[in-house]
Design a protein around this nucleic acid. Sequence first.
DNA 1: GATTGCGGGCCGG
DNA 2: CCGGCCCGCAATC
Length: 470
Amino acid sequence: MTLTWDINDPQMPQEPAHFDHFREWPDGYVRFIYSSQEKKAQRHLSGWAMRNTNNHNGHILKKSCLGVVVCARACALKDGSHLQLRPAICDKARLKQQKKACPNCHAALELVPCRGHSGYPVTNFWRLDGNAIFFQAKGVHDHPRPESKSETEGRRSALKRQMASFYQPQKRRSEEPGARSAQDIRGHLSSTLAPEPTELFDMTADTSLSITGQSCPSFPNSDVHRVTCDPPPFQGDVILPFQKYSNPSIYFPGPPWGYELASPGVTGSSPIPPCIKIPPFSYGSYERSMDFTASYHGWKLTHGKPSLEEKVECGQCQAVPTSPYYNLELPCRYLPVPPAGTQAMQTVITTTVAYQAYQHPALKHGDSVQEASSLAGCTYASENPPMPIYPQALDPQEGVVQAASPSGRAPVEVPGDSPATRPTLAFPHETGASRTDGADAWDVCLSGVGSVMGYLDRAGQPFGFDNEDF
DNA sequence: GATTGCGGGCCGG
DNA sequence: CCGGCCCGCAATC
């Protein structure tokens, strides 16, 4: 079955035959239909930090992604993973959050904005219609997953308990004349004057890290062995941001790209070639500034290798990696010169960076990718603005690589903006690539990345798979 | 205090 | 007109 609706349609499908299981981490240009009884859907929840966005349409709730808060120094946590806090939804709370320091190394925190949808934040749309809640996502998150809401809340409550037990005895002691401890004073300051220095204390406590004597909190990607197992979409009209791979992988974020499922089973039917995901600007410029571009520095590519069991378990899952990405020991700053033999990657990176940096406003990708838009292989632009790679639908029968010019678009025009409307160049240089071909193509794409991956290997964090609730 | 949804309004393409 | 985004308000927890 294929999707025939778009969130903006005047009329939505009536009485859908089946409902999807709730997805906590929807990513890519996906659409789901939830039951109006589904609690999480009712609340429009998402693992991503989504904030309400006014779209001036009372029937459709629109939310845009806030990205993720990371340590500016990309310090490694005990388990080697990296801090990936959930941005506060409220603007005010978020500003306050950003003023705090990394609970792990006390460096500054950085808000990594989401630019997965044509350079803009990924957007999610919710629409209640009859007994169904229609969900549509546009864009591919180009940043790690933040803590899920439940994790953040759990941490917060744990902190409260902890603070309560911490202050109780302190208070009692402070009641004794001249018996105030340093912590007491700092605690007092932080709650009154709250000058810069006390922020550390504040923040440390806020995240209940080791300093507070509590075990490491459950950061989203710290539990490497969790498995992401989104049930397959019934509609089979999903473009995955990327798939699970048999090889360690890194992938390009930037512009949306991924695989479009011809059918639910496709997801786990074949190994998908490794993809590359790097943050925009990462290798484009080395100067570090304190403006927003700073948040693009300090990313690293991380990868891991899902276990066989995981792969099997995810055979029919959406397989959204937790944080296939990065974060790191400041790759751009520490990797001033790409290792030799990385030309292929450099090309990819360069184009992606250029694209991201340029943010050509006229460029849009495949929103509303319908069943008709089966695209195969990966493509990239050879001109400015560069074209992101789009390893998409890989139906051997229908797969057609996007042509190199607007005149050579995918055979079937896709409603709405589509990647096919952008000038692209077949890559590596073939058309009608089958899924296998696509993999080969990727091998080519990534050849020479070894040295980089070697670095990433050392600095990277394992490829994590989150459990999605079914 | 934080989250969430709503809606007015502004701005740029 | 559309999409992004800012803001304030209100309800809720």
